[in-house]
Measured scan of single mutants.
Amino acid sequence: EVDTLELTRQVKEKLAKNGICQRIFGEKVLGLSQGSVSDMLSRPKPWSKLTQKGREPFIRMQLWLSDQL
């Protein structure tokens, strides 16, 4: 189980620290539009309420944070 709230907090922190905009992060890392990324980072759904497809971007965020992506 992933703590989506904590994960998105860490992602936002790393984006800010490295000067990466959400649009680029969305396109290059998540394969999503800036609007989708913005929504996901500001209002993450609980892991238990996400479908497999809904969980994929959060898994990619985890990999990106651990420099595996």
Rank of each mutant, 00 (worst) to 15 (best):
17 K>G: 05
33 S>E: 04
37 V>A: 08
34 Q>P: 15
41 L>Y: 02
44 P>N: 02
4 T>H: 06
5 L>E: 15
65 L>P: 00
17 K>S: 06
46 P>W: 14
35 G>P: 10
65 L>V: 04
14 K>W: 10
28 K>L: 03
1 E>H: 08
69 L>A: 07
50 L>D: 01
63 L>S: 15
51 T>N: 10
42 S>H: 13
50 L>C: 02
10 Q>L: 13
54 G>W: 10
34 Q>A: 15
5 L>D: 08
21 C>L: 11
60 R>D: 00
56 E>H: 02
42 S>E: 15
36 S>Q: 15
25 F>A: 00
65 L>A: 01
12 K>Y: 01
21 C>F: 10
47 W>T: 01
64 W>N: 01
7 L>H: 05
4 T>P: 07
60 R>K: 15
5 L>M: 15
4 T>S: 05
48 S>G: 13
45 K>Q: 08
3 D>C: 04
23 R>L: 06
51 T>D: 15
49 K>Q: 14
57 P>E: 08
11 V>F: 05
60 R>H: 02
26 G>K: 06
31 G>S: 08
5 L>R: 12
5 L>W: 12
37 V>D: 02
19 G>S: 13
15 L>V: 07
14 K>D: 01
63 L>K: 15
11 V>C: 02
64 W>V: 00
8 T>F: 08
42 S>L: 10
24 I>N: 06
12 K>Q: 03
12 K>C: 05
45 K>V: 10
1 E>G: 10
14 K>F: 15
4 T>W: 13
22 Q>M: 11
40 M>K: 12
57 P>W: 09
40 M>D: 11
41 L>K: 06
9 R>P: 08
68 Q>E: 13
14 K>G: 01
38 S>Y: 13
47 W>V: 00
22 Q>P: 11
33 S>V: 11
46 P>A: 05
52 Q>F: 04
32 L>H: 05
15 L>N: 07
48 S>N: 11
60 R>A: 04
2 V>L: 14
30 L>W: 06
62 Q>R: 14
38 S>H: 13
64 W>H: 00
18 N>R: 14
13 E>I: 08
17 K>E: 11
9 R>Y: 04
54 G>L: 13
20 I>K: 03
31 G>I: 01
67 D>Y: 03
57 P>Y: 14
64 W>F: 05
30 L>S: 02
4 T>C: 04
25 F>P: 00
47 W>Y: 01
21 C>K: 12
41 L>N: 02
17 K>D: 07
56 E>Y: 05
62 Q>H: 08
69 L>Q: 10
10 Q>H: 05
69 L>V: 11
67 D>L: 02
24 I>K: 10
31 G>Q: 06
59 I>D: 01
65 L>W: 02
61 M>A: 10
29 V>W: 09
61 M>E: 00
7 L>W: 05
7 L>S: 12
63 L>E: 14
33 S>Y: 09
65 L>M: 04
68 Q>R: 11
50 L>E: 00
67 D>V: 01
14 K>V: 12
58 F>K: 00
68 Q>I: 08
39 D>A: 11
29 V>E: 01
2 V>M: 15
16 A>K: 13
61 M>G: 01
46 P>V: 02
10 Q>A: 05
